[in-house]
């Protein structure tokens, strides 16, 4: 992930492909986890109809939105923690 290290200078072909692959991997992994959670939370297991009803649709939309919010919140919190540790000179977990 080049953006983490400020555009790493010379990477071999294999490294560049692997980096691109990792990026796709991360996004698709996030999507799979989101699908799993939001389906479980929003779609009841008694299939009364094949279509999504109003409530389920709205639930799915909001679920995606909140999933992203949680991602950002956690990332901010962890970044803050890491920075605090760096400043205090303590051992960070990262």
């Amino acid at each position: 992930m080049s953006f983490l290290f400020g555009g790493a200078p010379k990477m071999s072909s294999a490294e560049k492909i692997a980096a691109a692959e990792t990026e796709v991997e991360m996004i698709s992994d996030m999507f799979n986890r989101l699908t799993e959670s939001c389906t479980k939370k929003c779609i009841p297991a008694d299939y009364r109809e094949g279509d999504l009803n109003k409530g389920e649709s709205v639930c799915l939309d909001r679920c995606v939105s909140k999933f992203f919010d949680v991602n950002i919140k956690v990332s901010e919190k962890m970044q803050g923690e890491a920075n605090a540790n760096k400043q205090g000179g303590g051992m960070g977990f990262m």
Binding site: I27, F31, L34, T35, C38, T39, C42, I43, Y47, R48, E49, G50, D51, L52, E56, S57, L60, D61, C63, V64, S65, F68, I72
Partner: peptide, 28 residues
Amino acid sequence: TCIMRCVDKNLKSSARLNERFQEQNAAM
């Protein structure tokens, strides 16, 4: 009947999740 609905609903739900996901991801 249940299985037909189950497949139908899950495909639709995953299509909707995918749409929202793309939007949010682009925004982020």
